[in-house]
Simulated scan of single mutants.
Amino acid sequence: MPELSWTLPVARWSFWSSASEIPPDVAFVDPMMRRRLSSLSRMALKVAGDCVDAQTRMRVVFASRHGELRRTTDILRDIEAGKPVSPTAFSLSVLNAMSGLFGIARHDRSAATAVSAGAETLGYALLEAHAQRSDEPAGPILIVYADEPADARYGAIEQEVQRGALALLLDAGEAAQGQLACSVMPDAHAHQHGPKFATQSEALHHCLSTGECAAWDGNGGTWQWSWHAGTA
């Protein structure tokens, strides 16, 4: 794994935890569409909605290790039982279903990218957003990460995710609240700053909510995040 480091200007961010007793509020979504949302899409759309206004058009980077795997698993169970497959359920079972629903709800046809990279999914979504900003600096980018553990029938999964969602709106200038510094280093070169966490989402949430450094150990490399308030 090569050593990489980059910074992202964060204007807003939002987090939703499965520990919350209040269901995700997605009132901005049309009621007809709202009834079709999975638990994953509800979480994702809730944090995404927290970070944007109705008028601004923006690119989206959606990240999820398992995506709509629960919906896909239900479809496979129906096939196994000889039941007909719902066309709606099938169309919403793809990884990037949330980004499509988000664009439809906002009438926004801006580009959307979906990222899935195992336990390192969130980290590579941040890197993808940085690459897009480097290629085309103008305009905000919304990063949305949402995940939930896979069904038990898939067996034990190494470095399994926690259920939850996180969104960051990247925008430079006066809109930025601060700079998120990201890095990934081979184990031999890693110097730990701050506590380590079991998942990338826990580490990043800790960094954003406390302003402290946080780290996560992957296969062959250590990811680290730090927060610097104010614009660059």
Rank of each mutant, 00 (worst) to 15 (best):
V115R: 03
E80T: 12
V115T: 04
V161N: 11
N96P: 03
G123V: 03
Q162P: 00
D147I: 01
A117P: 01
S91P: 00
L166E: 09
A175T: 13
G100V: 02
A114K: 08
V115K: 04
I104K: 12
V161K: 11
L92P: 01
A117M: 12
F102K: 01
P137R: 05
A150N: 07
Q162C: 09
L76Q: 04
G164Q: 09
A117S: 13
L92E: 03
S91Q: 10
A172R: 13
D147K: 05
A152M: 11
A167F: 05
V161H: 11
V85D: 00
Q177T: 12
E158D: 15
A176E: 06
M98F: 14
L126P: 10
V94M: 03
I143N: 05
A152D: 15
A129N: 06
A119C: 11
E80M: 07
Q177M: 15
P140K: 00
L168K: 02
I143C: 06
Q177C: 11
P137A: 07
R109K: 08
T121F: 12
D135A: 15
P87E: 09
G155R: 13
A131S: 13
Y145L: 02
I79T: 07
E174G: 07
G123I: 01
L95I: 01
A125D: 09
L166M: 11
A150W: 03
G123H: 14
G100R: 07
E136F: 06
L126F: 13
A105I: 06
P84R: 05
R106M: 14
A176Y: 06
D151T: 10
G82F: 02
S91C: 01
S93H: 02
A105E: 06
R77C: 13
G155F: 06
A119M: 08
A152N: 10
R153G: 04
D151I: 04
S86L: 03
L76D: 00
G178N: 11
I141L: 08
Q177I: 12
A167V: 06
F90T: 04
A175W: 09
E120S: 15
L92A: 00
A138I: 08
R77P: 03
G164I: 07
A89F: 00
Q177A: 12
R163P: 05
L101Q: 14
P87Q: 09
D171F: 07
V85K: 02
L127W: 15
P84A: 12
F102Y: 14
P137E: 06
Y145S: 02
L122C: 07
E128K: 08
A89C: 00
P149G: 01
S134F: 02
I141A: 00
T121C: 11
E128H: 11
Y145N: 00
A167Y: 04
L166T: 10
A146N: 03
D78C: 10
V85W: 00
I143D: 04
A117C: 13
L168Y: 09
Y154F: 15
A119D: 15
Q132A: 06
S116Y: 00
L126S: 05
G155I: 04
Y154E: 12
V94E: 04
R153Q: 14
A167S: 13
E136R: 11
G123L: 12
E158H: 14
R153I: 15
Y145K: 02
N96S: 06
A89E: 11
L168I: 07
I141Q: 03
D135I: 04
A129L: 09
Q159N: 14
E158I: 10
G139L: 01
G82A: 01
V144W: 02
G178T: 12
A165I: 05
D171E: 15
I79K: 02
L126Y: 10
A89N: 07
A112T: 15
